[in-house]
């Protein structure tokens, strides 16, 4: 039976998934306080889809692995209840189909570079996204959950975060490489 999650005022979650051609998918979930300081971190061991999954899920494989499998598992492992969950991996949004946690994809900055050498950010086959703007950030949520946008806007104004939303993903990526040195070599 899952432990009840602790409440912590003003904490936010950042989840991402990276894919290595050699090792498979790596997921990381970082929960920070409103100053951006780390409170909790979870990561998966490398996830390699089976040949059957590749055939059966086809172009929706990334959505299944990143969202329904990795993101769901990471969020459920966290001890803290987060107010908002952001991701830089569009495929992670499909976790919303199997989870009650609203999740928003942060659109990359124009000047941002894509992932780390040897690692890629998985893509998504989903086309049912609703786009909106929050402060300086462009976000997308699953359009099947029409209320998510309003939830994000409301909590965003309540939290008054003092963090750059793009920055924590760099930390997670580095932490993933630290936890899985093989991925770095790849």
């Amino acid at each position: 039976m899952a432990e009840p999650k602790r409440e912590s005022a003003g904490c936010v979650g950042f989840v991402t998934v990276r894919r290595s051609a050699e090792h498979g998918y790596f997921g990381g979930y970082l929960i920070v306080n409103f100053h951006g300081r780390p409170l909790e971190f979870h990561c998966t061991l490398p996830v390699k889809p089976s040949r059957a999954q590749e055939i059966l899920f086809g172009r929706t494989l990334d959505d299944f692995i990143c969202g329904e499998q990795i993101t769901k598992a990471l969020v459920s492992k966290a001890k803290l209840n987060t107010n908002l969950i952001f991701t830089d991996c569009m495929a992670a949004i499909s976790s919303r189909l199997v989870s009650d946690h609203p999740i928003a994809m942060l659109q990359p900055r124009a000047d941002s570079s894509q992932a780390e050498p040897g690692l890629a950010i998985p893509i998504s086959a989903a086309d049912n996204l609703a786009h909106f703007r929050l402060g300086d950030y462009d976000l997308s949520v699953s359009s099947r959950f029409a209320g998510d946008e309003a939830i994000f806007k409301q909590r965003w104004h309540e939290l008054k975060l003092d963090v750059d939303l793009h920055e924590p993903f760099e930390r997670i990526a580095e932490a993933l490489l630290e936890a899985h040195p093989a991925a770095r070599a790849a």
Binding site: R37, L39, Q53
Partner: peptide, 21 residues
């Protein structure tokens, strides 16, 4: 029948002390 794996993913996790501000 083709069985798709349904076992839970293995994760590792750490909690950090609530740091002073």
């Amino acid at each position: 029948p083709i069985r798709l794996p349904t076992s839970a993913l293995k994760t590792i996790g750490f909690t950090f002390p609530e740091s002073p501000n």
